[in-house]
């Protein structure tokens, strides 16, 4: 197992290097941030030169990349070229909210999607299967910003029906995440747990919006996995042996169907870090997605690279973890 992990780490290094080079080049080819500065009539030619030098943009590309790489390895993510703040500060103040929203929606979706998927797998081709299929497909067919608008509309209508009492906030972060960069993720979650009602009223709409898509995908997946497993010979033999349907279903079928989900969920966990750009923007949540969008649009290389590199590392880590888990859960697969 240690050997396996070591090998994985070794093979991850070149991948990460190439990922960083690709993103670095993409960003460098992107719109020149100096052009953005020039829009402002107050910037003189000297100002532009000075700022370019300050950010090291006047050096050769290779040098810039090596400079960035050296710092990155030592844990220095650099300085944002937009507001001169440390990149890590910008990320860490956004991360708690993003993790809370995406994490919650993941838990909610799994709790809803798995039972639905399992139910319709047993009742294949029944009415409920068709209804579930239709509704999951319908969820997939709705652009997320439109879903978000409908949820806001619902909240507004609900308020009107309640005579002006608003149940669900249509936007804004809960007060408990506002403590800025000095509060850690745990502290944030802790303080939100202290004010669960406010947090719930704030996060209900965005978490629902995010969950809708995930429920659709996962319940479909669960269904097809379980259908596949239920068709297997060993289920039939288990039944033939006289085991009760429940035992066979939960101990054999569901367990085996869940195995591949491990990998998917693991990768989705890695994806949590990046946030959800559309949902965050509609509901006014200052999360990672918004930071990413701002940074990409203003060609803030240090921030984008940091997000990409952390994201890519998480993907690699979670794949490894998933493979190891898989080995533990499925005796047929041995990690070597």
């Amino acid at each position: 197992m240690i050997g396996f992990t070591f090998k994985r780490v070794l093979s991850a290094i070149p991948v990460l290097i190439v990922v960083s080079i690709i993103m670095f080049m993409l960003m460098k080819m992107g719109p020149n941030p100096l052009e953005l500065l020039k829009q402002d009539p107050k910037f003189s030619a000297e100002d532009v030169k000075r700022i370019s030098k300050l950010n090291g943009w006047d050096k050769p590309l290779v040098e810039q990349y090596v400079f960035w790489g050296k710092n990155f390895i030592t844990g220095d993510l650099g300085i944002s070229t937009v507001d001169q703040r440390a990149v890590w500060d910008k990320i860490s103040e956004r991360l708690p909210l993003t993790l809370m929203v995406t994490g919650l929606s993941m838990v909610v979706s799994l709790m809803i999607a798995l039972p639905i998927g399992a139910y319709v797998a047993i009742h294949k081709y029944s009415k409920s299967d068709y209804v579930a299929t239709l509704s999951t497909f319908a969820m997939m067919a709705s652009p997320s910003f439109f879903v978000a608008l409908l949820l806001q509309l619902a909240a507004v209508k609900l308020q009107d029906m309640n005579g002006g009492t608003l149940w669900f906030y249509t936007g804004g972060a809960p007060a408990c995440v506002g403590a800025g960069s000095d509060s850690g993720i745990l502290k944030t979650v802790g303080s939100c747990a202290m004010t669960p009602i406010e947090a719930f009223r704030r996060l209900a709409l965005p978490v629902t919006a995010l969950s809708i898509l995930q429920i659709a995908g996962w319940s479909r997946y669960m269904r097809s996995e379980l259908v596949g497993v239920l068709n297997q010979d060993y289920i039939r033999s288990a039944m033939a042996k006289g085991l009760s349907g429940k035992v066979v279903f939960f101990r054999h079928a569901v367990r085996n169907a869940l195995l591949p989900l491990v990998t998917i969920v693991a990768l989705d966990v890695a994806g949590l870090f990046g946030g959800a750009v559309i949902t965050e923007s509609v509901f006014g949540l200052p999360g990672m997605g918004g930071l990413l969008l701002e940074s990409v649009k203003s060609t803030d290389i240090a921030v984008v690279l940091a997000i990409v590199m952390i994201g890519a590392t998480l993907v690699l880590v979670m794949t490894t973890v998933a493979d190891m888990l898989y080995g533990i859960l499925d005796p047929r697969v041995r990690v070597n």
Partner: peptide, 27 residues
């Protein structure tokens, strides 16, 4: 593998900005 390791959203957005902006290198 490398391409799939890059988080898809930043990749998509930066490439989209790249081709959308005439001031970019390939613009």
């Amino acid at each position: 593998n490398v391409l799939m390791t890059i988080p898809s959203l930043p990749l998509l957005m930066s490439v989209a900005v790249l081709v959308a902006s005439p001031s970019s290198a390939i613009g």
